[in-house]
């Protein structure tokens, strides 16, 4: 009921103003488009709650809360344009819904990009042996669909004689490494000029300030235009409802990262945004037993990634497309 009172207050404009310019010269609360939507959903929420109270003999308290939270969740706006307060509300709502729906205790972060950080990644193709520890770690960290065996990372077995990953095979499953082959992995390259971002009709995907290209899973309508536009096969679509059992779920999550997704939305590697924004390495970097993966801040001149770009012979995939990927390959 407390929540209901708060909502009533905000709807009637009785809450304290944080920003004086929210009121016009007559002292009336200025109504922005977002404010209108907020009030409309609040009204709808109140209406739903009233209905819920009336129907309390038919559905329990938890069900009512679930319905009302799902209703609010449906009407929220694009995360990119949400205020800090709305983002906090959104993640709290999702945490509560996770508890109600599957009795999972998750913490969903809304942490913003750390200023002065631009993430970069380097991959040593002399060191990769095709063990795929990275893929397993990624799958577990990012709560990927187990049923379809969805994987963000692809490891290619390429025959010696070409550096072109198109000539490789990423469907191998035998002991590695084999003679006359080398191994290289691909995932989202987090391009500085991503071709997948301008094509989205609803602005559901964008590049954050620290260079990570993210997707707002609840805003995506599932048109798959970004999947057609990506030259690196980075994007994954949830063709069916993703299945991850609660005991295998990673509970430290980020709104733009590894939280549970619905069917019909796009997802992809986020450089483990829930980890990298806390100063940790992505799961793939941690897991690699040969040290083939390097991650760091491109704007720090002392970081390993900068040193590698400056000293080693690096290349990127499909540089001629002008996408400026932040994923370099190098050799010993």
């Amino acid at each position: 009921m407390k929540g209901l009172r708060e909502r009533l207050k905000s709807f009637l404009g009785l809450e304290e103003s944080e920003n004086p310019s929210k009121f016009d010269f007559l002292g009336r609360k200025k109504q922005s488009r977002r404010g209108f939507l907020k009030d409309a959903t609040t009204t709808a929420g109140i209406g739903a709650s009233i209905m819920g109270v009336g129907a309390s003999t038919l559905i329990g308290e938890e069900e009512k809360e679930k319905l009302s939270l799902s209703w609010e969740n449906y009407f929220k706006s694009n995360y990119k344009y949400m205020s800090k307060r709305d983002r906090k509300k959104a993640v709290k709502r999702l945490e509560r819904l996770a508890k109600l729906k599957r009795d999972e205790n998750v913490s969903i972060s809304d942490k913003d990009a750390i200023p002065g950080v631009l993430f970069g990644y380097a991959f040593n193709i002399s060191k990769c042996e095709g063990y795929m520890d990275c893929i397993k770690a990624c799958l577990e960290e990012n709560n990927l669909d187990r049923k379809s065996n969805m994987q963000y990372i692809k490891v290619f077995e390429v025959e010696n004689g070409t550096l072109s990953v198109e000539n490789g095979d990423n469907h191998f499953f035998h002991e590695t490494p084999t003679d006359e082959h080398f191994y290289m992995g691909t995932q989202c390259m987090h391009c500085e000029n991503p071709p997948c971002v301008p094509v989205c009709p609803t602005e559901a995907t964008w590049k954050e300030n620290d260079g990570i290209v993210v997707v707002d899973y609840d805003w995506c309508i599932g048109c798959r235009y970004c999947e057609a536009a990506c030259p690196y096969e980075a994007r994954r679509f949830n063709w069916a409802e993703p299945e991850v059992s609660s005991d295998q779920l990673t509970t430290n999550q980020h709104y733009l990262g590894n939280r549970r997704k619905a069917k019909g939305v796009m997802e992809k590697c986020t450089f483990c945004i829930q980890r990298s924004r806390e100063g940790e390495n992505p799961a793939c970097v941690e897991a690699c037993p040969t040290g083939a993966r390097v991650f760091g801040n491109l704007l720090d001149p002392n970081s390993e990634i900068r040193k590698i770009i400056e000293t080693k012979k690096v290349f990127r995939l499909k540089e001629e497309l002008g996408t400026e990927p932040k994923f370099w390959y190098y050799m010993d």
Partner: peptide, 21 residues
């Protein structure tokens, strides 16, 4: 030398439509 190992898991086959239903 790290030596030969069996990959940690089977590759992702997006064309296997039957498995995803």
């Amino acid at each position: 030398v790290f030596g030969k190992r069996v990959p940690k898991l089977a590759p992702y086959r997006p064309e296997n439509n039957e498995e995803r239903l």
